[in-house]
């Protein structure tokens, strides 16, 4: 435990990444796969789960080895570990579904450079015991998956009238083609960020108003 920092409970550690430090909406990390593969809910969730797998596996290993990894070569070590899990997940996805593998394409291999993962290894797993690291990684992975799903869901609903491949509006639905094209990713991400920041700003606006009533807006 780091001195001077409030010790979080295990549950808080888990929830950290889901909401307060959400990798997509709060930290805005790992945008490359976020924008590229979120054309459908299925792709988004697959990518989220793959990233979660790598995240959990690598932080667990990093945390286990945290006391033996020399600081001079820690980044190299982390990258080797992360790359290992990316390779593993690459094989797993090929074994489970080639369709998903083709849809995600190079972005599976690119998980290795997803800054969420190296960030978690360096900032969290290298300083915390395995259980807490895994909890934190699970939360982050869940947050990432939720973020990707939020994008992929909206893009698939508007862009194809479907969700997870199931038609929602019948055959006459007019797809918004732009939503499955790259600009659509930016539009939807922008809209979600707007919503998130608006919610957060309402919260922070409301917070100081409590002690001094009647002076909400100065």
């Amino acid at each position: 435990m780091i001195p001077g920092q409030k010790q979080l409970s295990n549950l808080e550690e888990l929830l950290e990444g889901v909401w307060k430090q959400n990798p997509v909406f709060v930290m805005v990390l790992g945008m490359c796969p976020t924008l590229a593969v979120s054309v459908s809910a299925m792709n988004a969730v697959s990518m989220g789960l793959a990233t979660t797998f790598v995240l959990v596996g690598s932080t667990f290993l990093v945390s286990l080895l945290r006391n033996v990894i020399p600081k001079e070569v820690r980044i190299a070590t982390y990258i080797v570990i992360i790359a290992t899990f990316v390779t593993v997940v690459d094989y797993l996805i090929q074994a489970i579904s080639l369709a998903v593998y083709d849809a995600l394409g190079a972005f599976i291999q690119l998980i290795v450079v997803n800054c969420i993962i190296l960030g978690r290894a360096e900032a969290h797993a290298s300083k915390n015991p395995p259980l807490r690291s895994v909890l934190n990684a699970l939360g982050m992975g869940a947050g990432f998956t939720v973020g990707l799903f939020a994008l992929g869901g909206v893009r698939e609903i508007l862009g194809a009238g479907k969700l997870f491949g199931f038609s929602l509006f019948g055959p006459d639905f007019q797809p918004w083609v732009v939503m499955v094209l790259p600009p659509g990713g930016f539009f939807v991400l922008g809209a979600w960020l707007l919503l998130f920041n608006w919610l957060n700003s309402r919260k922070t606006d409301a917070a100081p108003a409590k002690p001094a009533e009647g002076h909400a807006h100065v």
């Binding site: 007019q174 918004w176 083609v177 732009v178 939503m179 094209l181 600009p183």
Partner: peptide, 9 residues
Amino acid sequence: FVQAAFPVA
């Protein structure tokens, strides 16, 4: 935007 969204219409 609509050109990209509804290229046919």
